Amino acid sequence: MAKEGKRLFGFIWKYRTLYFISIPGILYFIVFKYLPLLGSVIAFQNYNLFAGFGGSPWVGFAHFERMFQHYDFIRILKNTLVLGLLDILIAYTAPIILALLLNEVRLVLYKKIVQTVVYAPHFLSWVIVSGIFTGMLSPSSGIVNVILGWFGIEPIYFLGENSYIRSILVGSGLWRDVGWGTIIYLAALTGINPELYEASEIDGAGRWKQTLRITIPSLLPVITVLFLLKIGDFMDYGFERVFVFQNPLNITNSEILDTYIYKAGLKQMQYSYATAMGLFKSVVGLVLLMIANTLSRKSTGESLY
Rank of each mutant, 00 (worst) to 15 (best):
K230E: 08
A205P: 02
T182C: 15
L83Y: 05
I261F: 09
W58F: 09
L159M: 13
L18H: 11
V284C: 09
L35V: 15
G131N: 03
Y237W: 07
T224W: 02
K78A: 05
I202D: 07
L289T: 03
F245T: 00
L83C: 01
W208R: 13
W208H: 08
I156W: 00
T134P: 00
I132V: 09
A188R: 11
D177R: 08
G206M: 10
G160Y: 01
L220A: 12
R66Q: 10
Y34K: 11
A2E: 13
K33F: 06
V129L: 04
S140C: 09
L35D: 15
I30Q: 06
L228G: 09
D177Y: 13
Y19H: 05
A94I: 15
T17D: 07
E161R: 15
A276C: 09
N250V: 00
I128K: 06
A205Q: 05
N293E: 05
T224A: 06
G55E: 04
I156K: 12
I113F: 13
Y273Q: 02
M235K: 04
T211C: 15
R241Q: 15
K78H: 06
R241N: 13
I156N: 01
I42Q: 03
R106L: 06
Y92N: 05
L102P: 03
L288A: 12
L212Y: 13
A205E: 08
E65C: 12
L107D: 06
E195P: 01
I21K: 10
S299N: 02
L102A: 03
W208M: 14
V287A: 11
R75D: 05
G135P: 01
T215D: 03
K209E: 04
L279A: 15
E240V: 10
G60I: 01
L304P: 06
V242K: 11
W58M: 12
I147P: 09
E65L: 13
L18T: 02
L196F: 11
S172M: 15
T190M: 09
G25C: 06
I128A: 13
D72T: 09
L101N: 04
L228M: 12
V105K: 05
Y305N: 06
S125G: 15
D177W: 11
N247P: 00
G171A: 00
V284D: 02
N162S: 07
G181D: 00
I156V: 15
L159W: 00
L219Q: 10
I183V: 13
W126G: 04
V127T: 13
W208L: 14
P139A: 01
T215Y: 03
T93A: 08
A274Y: 07
S296V: 02
I12G: 02
I153N: 07
S172V: 14
L286Q: 07
